[in-house]
Design a protein around this nucleic acid. Structure first.
Lengths: 187, 187
DNA sequence: TCCTCCATGTAAAAGGTTACATGATTTG
DNA sequence: CAAATCATGTAACCTTTTACATGGAGGA
């Protein structure tokens, strides 16, 4: 079995955990909601659903029904037990420095799906690790900035670089606020 | 001729405009500097250089030399006149709402390369258009947020969404500061 | 000569985009 | 039933990732 799944696949898994849906439903979600960064093209969704199905993570809603397998028309998918485990495992993965450097969107997707899928402690650990990873990244960025300012007399280049730094600082600020929020409402 | 080029290709073009370099030099830049978000794998760089060469945007440094074409070893590439035009055109492209929603990294790459390649007025127009696009995007995000807060009782989901909003606000703040910087130093 | 970097080449697989095709279902 | 819309399928192409292969240059 494949050990890694694409971000699109995990987005599908998370949405199907919420409730069984058709490929078309999922496409509409990607097309019209805050998840619009994921492709809503049939050429990405339907093949992804096939992969997930052949991996055993999702299944057609009523697998025992005697319907013709090759029929067309609306087909609901649901998450299997294996798919649920895969989701939980993915949500509980440690946050690495590389994640914070290259995969922020995936991290935010993970965090978004944590509610009602993993205990709050997992979300809090995620935020702690995220903060640490961002701190480590910040050190690297400062070194880069020094090297860059020395080597190139490039105005817009330095400004573009600063945009990255400020984005990271905003992310760091968010992490701290999010943690405070999660702790405060001790449900 | 292809009308669009990948972001990696434009990154290569911009670096080659700065000075002629070998594929290995470019790989090292991607591996060790602030441009590390671009792939430094040989499987992406060398094929990309081939594509640019066959498109006429770059050429081997001394094209008239009688060297064996199929030799290995270090080979410098330089930007051609066509490549320079393609770069200028790309830098001068208008900033759309879709750019601000889906292609921030490419926008920042464009801005980084503007210095010494296009007049300052182009950079200022870029920032104006970027600000307007971000404002349009912000309206959409607010609508999303309202719909989302009503539809889902998801804590971490809403928090993740806020991270996106705050990132956009940080970007907006940066745009204004960058414009002030560019205007102040009236070189 | 041997070893170690430097530097480029390439094949296979995976995933996404675009564009088109086609089967169902609803509505007038 | 005709038209529009819902819903899925798929083929061609492109780029990237991964992994491995190969050639050149310099030092011990």
């Amino acid at each position: 079995m494949k050990l890694t799944a694409s971000t699109l696949e995990m987005a599908l898994i998370g949405l199907l955990k919420y409730k069984p849906q058709s490929g078309y439903d999922l496409r509409k979600t990607f097309a019209t909601t805050a998840m619009r960064h994921y492709s809503d093209s049939p050429g990405s969704i339907y093949p992804a659903l096939r992969r997930l199905q052949s991996r055993g993570w999702i299944a057609a809603k009523a697998p025992t029904q005697s319907e013709d397998e090759s029929r067309r028309g609306r087909r609901l998918f649901r998450l299997t037990a294996e798919g649920g485990s895969a989701l939980s495992e993915w949500l509980g993965l440690p946050v690495t420095r590389d994640d914070a450097m290259y995969r922020i969107p995936e991290l935010m997707l993970r965090f978004a799906f944590m509610d009602s899928n993993v205990p709050r402690s997992t979300a809090l650990r995620f935020l702690d690790q995220f903060e640490q990873a961002l701190g480590s990244y910040a050190a690297e960025l400062r070194a880069d900035f020094a090297r860059m300012a020395a080597a190139m007399p490039v105005n817009t280049g330095l400004l573009a670089f600063q945009s990255g730094i400020e984005g990271m600082q905003a992310q760091l600020k968010w992490v701290r606020k999010a943690r405070a929020r999660l702790k405060e409402k001790r449900q």
